[in-house]
Amino acid sequence: MRKGDLLLEFDRDLALENGYQDTVIVFYTQPRKIVKTSEVETGKTVKHGEEVVSVEFREAIKNSEKTMGLQAE
């Protein structure tokens, strides 16, 4: 998967009609590894692919895993 690839389309109206919200949420699943993040500019309107946040985190992934990830590209 490359940055900007279309991954999913969803029917916002269907969600809203059924009483659900359409908010798109991005959260980190290893919060303790996050060292710091830049401020998110709340309220700003963005286009997809624009920079939102810069995340500093500690990562000790094995080299083998890294190469596998690259191969899969």
């Binding site: 798109v24 963005v46 997809h48 692919g49 624009e50 995340v55 500690r58």
Partner: peptide, 20 residues
């Protein structure tokens, strides 16, 4: 927490059009 692990940086780009 992995105190010995090196600190890496990743920029997250907006996955959708809209308001942050």
């Amino acid at each position: 927490e992995e105190p010995d692990a090196s600190v890496t940086n990743e920029i997250v780009y907006a996955p959708a059009d809209g308001e942050l």
